[in-house]
């Protein structure tokens, strides 16, 4: 750095190597375990030389855990959350920053209040909400005596119950997690730094609000969007509690939940090689996204703090 400190520099690299090994150890060990046959894995201690059963274990984990379907579900959920969050919060922030209307501040405060309130703290009522999205409208319906109105129109007695169940559906997996104040806040901060002249020039050229949004704001936000794509994809993919609650059908659940069925219980044959092969498959997509989009990921994670 500034002066020559050969001993300290050597130590630095030594500690770094050590740190990388400590951090990487679980994954290295998992990869080794996933290549071994069952007899080797349950040997004590497990050999540290990779075996040749990697594809066999991967295939076994794939078919036993029905990972094909579940990875697809995970992907739909992660992509849906990412896309939904970014679209909803971007147009929301656009409305808050570039327009002046009566309820602007109210809307902003209402959204801002949900910042950092994870779905975990309100699981039960949110679950009830997802079980019947129209539940809160039922009292309104009853109070307005719309039943009798419908009956009168139809000419005979009809009981109308409003119901829209989100359990075991993609909508249910995605929609409740789309409510995010963080993204809205981020886009708002970013839009505020966009020079006023751009908007003035666009208006002078006769561009409408939506043209300005499409042609100017959207291209300018590219980096921010890329960063959010990485962060939200990882967030969506790694969701645990919510999919656990609202999916009961194994065909609708996500890979992270499905993976738990591969963990051998104390009574079973300890087939850790297959469980860990499954774990490798499931954690690969978000790791690849983070590694390949590292630059945007770090930027997106660190910048909002400032």
């Amino acid at each position: 750095m500034v002066e020559k400190t050969p001993i300290l520099d050597t130590l630095t690299y030594l500690f770094l190597m050590l740190g990388i090994v400590v951090v990487g150890f679980p994954i290295i060990y998992t990869i080794i375990a996933a290549t071994l046959p069952i007899e080797e894995v349950s040997k004590v201690p497990m050999p540290l030389i990779p075996g040749d059963q990697f594809w066999v274990n991967i295939q076994e984990a794939w078919s036993r855990g029905d990972l094909g379907t579940q990875l697809f579900n995970s992907f739909i959920m992660a992509a849906g959350i990412t896309f939904g969050k970014i679209v909803v919060s971007m147009i929301g922030a656009f409305s808050i920053v570039y327009f002046d209307y009566r309820f602007r501040t109210v809307a902003f405060v209402a959204v801002f209040c949900t910042l950092m309130l994870p779905v975990e703290v309100r699981i039960l009522p949110t679950y009830e909400m997802a079980a019947n999205l129209f539940g809160p409208l039922q009292p309104v319906w009853d109070a307005l005596h719309l039943n009798s109105l419908v009956s009168w129109i139809a000419g005979h007695e009809i009981e109308v119950a409003l119901e829209w169940c989100l359990l075991d559906s993609y909508t249910g997996l995605i929609l409740p997690l789309v409510a995010s104040a963080t993204c809205t806040f981020l886009f708002r901060q970013f839009f505020l730094t966009v020079p006023e002249e751009l908007c003035e020039a666009a208006k002078m050229d006769g561009a409408s609000a939506m043209t300005f949004f499409r042609k100017i704001l959207l291209p300018l936000s590219k980096t921010n969007i890329a960063a959010l794509v990485v962060i939200e994809f990882v967030y969506g993919w790694n969701q645990y509690l919510w999919p656990l609650l609202i999916t009961t059908n194994p065909k609708m659940t996500t890979a992270i939940i499905g993976l738990q069925h591969l963990i051998p219980s104390p009574e079973d044959v300890p087939e850790w090689n297959i469980a860990l092969a499954g774990a490798l498959i499931v954690m690969l997509p978000p790791i690849l996204v983070v590694l390949f989009m590292q630059r945007w990921f770090v930027k997106g994670l660190v910048d909002p703090e400032k």
């Binding site: 951090v23 990487g24 990882v234 992270i256 978000p286 790791i287 983070v290």
Partner: peptide, 16 residues
């Protein structure tokens, strides 16, 4: 080499 564990789900980390 040091940032990738962030992408591992807590549940999977627990499993490892």
């Amino acid at each position: 080499m040091l940032i990738w564990p962030y992408a591992v789900a807590p549940a999977v980390s627990g499993m490892l």
